[in-house]
Design a protein around this nucleic acid. Sequence first.
DNA 1: GGTATCACG
DNA 2: ACGTACGTGATACCC
Length: 600
Amino acid sequence: MAQFNRWLERLKTAKLFAIDTETTSLDTLQAKIVGLCFAVENPEDKNSHLACYIPLTHDYEDAPKQLDLTMVLEQLTPILEDENILKCGQNLKYDWHVLQNHGISLKGMQFDTMLESYTLNSVATRHNMDDLALKYLNHRTTHFEEIAGKGKKQLTFNQIEIKTAAPYAAEDADITLQLHKTLWQQLEAEPKLKAVFTDIEMPLMPVLAHMERNGILLDTDMLAKQSEEITLKLAELEQKAHLIAGSDFNLNSSKQLQVVLFETLELPILKKTPKGQPSTAEPVLAELAEQGHEMPILILEYRSLAKLKSTYTDALPKQIDPQTGRVHTSYQQAVASTGRLSSTDPNLQNIPIRTAEGRRIRQAFIARDGYQLVAADYSQIELRIMAHLSGDEGLLNAFAQGLDIHQATAAEIFGIELDQVTTEQRRSAKAVNFGLIYGMSAFGLAKQLNVSRGTAQEYINLYFARYPGVLQYMENTKEHAKEAGYVETLKGRRLYLPDINARNGQLRQYAERTAINAPMQGTAADIIKMAMIQIEAWLNCTEFDIQMLMQVHDELVFEVAENQVEAVKKEIKTIMESALTLKVPLIVEIGQGKNWDEAH
DNA sequence: GGTATCACG
DNA sequence: ACGTACGTGATACCC
């Protein structure tokens, strides 16, 4: 107790302290505190740290009596909720959730070592503490598995003896503080990266935490019905396929399918997988189907239905939190090299939309009673960014006039008037526009459009002749990448390209395409992240009954009280469109409905 | 645990 | 001559 009081004083007066929560589980909404650890700079020696572990709810047999959790949290709450007492941590979003589970709103989250590492080098694959300690401090930490075991027999933290847990936990807090010092020094040497960290990544973290906690409601009856229907259709398709093959086989196994297609039925092998196996991927089966073979048609339909069932209609209901009745995704903020977010458990960023069957799954994402879903998405954001970054006059004009950009591109490429553009020409122009964003090759465009490579090259040449600024920009970007070894977004987010000068042509070309794509994809990520931060600030001071639920790269989804939808839409649109001022207008399309499909 | 496939922007 | 459009995550096999 005396020690705890001493630490209370230390934390109250510290300029900055590291915090780490030890918990019963890793589930953000269920995890409860087992112990708390803190680290501060040693006031008597700036080069060393003081770290402590406060065991609270270890409950193995013969565990010693520990300080009372409620009392400890009560004493700590004013410190944890004081935004002027700064905290650092490793993946603070997790600690925020854990404390939230105990009714505490952690504030003053100033530095997250995971995000510091990600901002410094987004290409590095892992930003977990053990790897960071090794990389930046040349220190090998004790891994959780070493004290808890692994696999089925792994202990949860409450089952670990305090004498083992304490040094492990204290090390974590100490290392976090050390890491922060090192990483922050590196960020301070790079003002633009420091701004990305301070102005975007750190303020975004609590926004994501709130969205995760909000979750979204699913219509489980609807999904169950869809599953049943799909099951029936799958059985029919399977029966037909077995009949044609003359034997029973597993339609889910690409290996067994290879045998049936290319040995039993002797269909031509059109493509091989990287491992040299005959490919049965979608484009191959589509081509075989076009040649008039029946089996590939069956397989394609079977696969698309099996995907919907296993990944969505069956899997999503299992992810519903029993306490809240909603699904709570986890947003990964330090994964995608371009600066985008990713979503896991479940991934809510790849819910079907492109087919009618798939859209039925979106219809099961619903608003609760008395509320509507509002979906707001940026229109053509990456092409607008390309117009801005390249400064190409033609492209800037097209956006300034509010033209349908694919139609305008078609008119330019084919040298005709806007109203003369056919559906087919617009489709080709759209593919060219997408290709530009991806660092297109004539081969890739040809494949996409199903035209000859020569024709594809012709489109590309025509495009660059009409939009010379874009060609210039692409050349400049590659040039810059080769000299600097990285490219950056409009906000200065950096993406390193170690292979940009590689002797291996394949690696180099891959890096060149990334050099083209990353500034556009990454700037779009910057923009929506800034919009999210501003929307959150507005939400925190508005009386409107609204929650932000999801982010899907260029789209935000909200749940809004029915009678406030119109007012709220106007505000969201304004904030999103003015998140960043470009040389072209940013346009947000916004809709509402009882479900996510309707809201589009 | 790697490979193939397919869902999204 | 070669391999070829950017970024993700989940699921099913199969070793």
